[in-house]
């Protein structure tokens, strides 16, 4: 169970990207987080695994506080939080199998990681998951030789290799064509129930959010303005979330909290 309370994030002295956000996700529910670019969707997801440092508030995963963790304790907590990215974030020059096994980096030691001597159990799990998403025959291909949909499936398998207690997906379908993105959404939906995982999905596409998730959370300017079942997500709710936001202005003013630039900022915040 994930419990977010009073979460606030601001970059420097700018207006808050997230303001006093409360959200509780239980069991194996699939939750869509919708909102315009800059609404704070990515920032919220990245606050959970601390790729972005929250300014204040509390985030609890299965009862343990994440916001105050540091160093080794933070890394141990991150092992239990799988993440799927918009740009897949695979290591292009490594093989599919190496990318997938990278999901175990939090569990193996440095020698095992560098020499690729992963425990047999990890390799078995990797093959089982690759079979599950039907790309096991690509195990020894380089990641950059795959198509977009296949690459995202590698990204999903990598996250699942962590044996996560929650899965975060940041615009997992935004770089994919419509058909492939439907496949990925269906995959995330069925994996959630197979592995009884809660899944949080940031998504632009409201139709997909309604079709593949059981709960929709709407953000605007860092505040939650909708929380309910897909069938309650009406035209009014849609207008409240996206209405009156002119795309170009929105891009100019609020891009720091969206897309790949958000990623770069997140890394900078983590002192890497």
């Amino acid at each position: 169970m994930l419990e977010i309370s009073n979460l606030t994030k601001r970059y420097g002295s700018d207006a808050a990207v997230l303001e006093d956000l409360d959200l509780t996700v239980e069991g194996n529910s699939v939750v869509a987080i919708v909102g315009a670019s800059g609404a704070g969707k990515s920032t919220m997801l990245r606050c959970i695994n601390r790729l972005v440092e929250p300014t204040s508030g509390s985030i609890k995963l299965n009862g343990s506080e994440l916001v105050t963790l540091k160093g080794a304790a933070l890394r141990q907590a991150r092992r239990k939080i799988g993440m799927v990215f918009q740009g897949f974030n695979l290591i292009d020059r490594l093989t599919v199998m190496e990318n997938v096994l990278a999901g175990r980096l939090g569990y193996v030691n440095l020698y095992q990681a560098v020499t690729r001597r992963y425990p047999q159990a990890d390799i078995d799990r990797a093959f089982a998951l690759l079979e599950r998403v039907e790309i096991a025959h690509y195990a020894n291909k380089r990641a950059d030789a795959l198509s977009g949909g296949e690459r995202q499936r590698v990204g999903v398998v990598r996250a699942l290799m962590q044996e996560p207690e929650i899965l975060l997906a940041d615009e997992p379908t935004a770089s994919l064509d419509p058909r492939t993105s439907e496949q990925i959404m269906r995959l995330l939906q069925s994996l959630a129930s197979e592995m009884s995982l809660p899944v949080l999905i940031n998504i632009h596409n409201v139709a997909q959010a309604k079709a593949y998730t059981e709960r929709i959370v709407g953000l605007r300017h860092g505040k939650m303005i909708f929380d309910g079942a897909p069938e309650d997500f009406t035209k009014e709710a849609l207008d409240a979330i996206y209405g009156g936001i002119e795309a170009p202005d929105d891009q100019l003013i609020e891009t720091p909290a969206s897309g790949p630039r958000q990623g770069a900022r997140g890394v900078a915040h983590d002192s890497f």
Partner: peptide
Amino acid sequence: RRPVEAMQATGA
């Protein structure tokens, strides 16, 4: 930077 972010997210 994106793979770096992904590796950090695994707890590496």
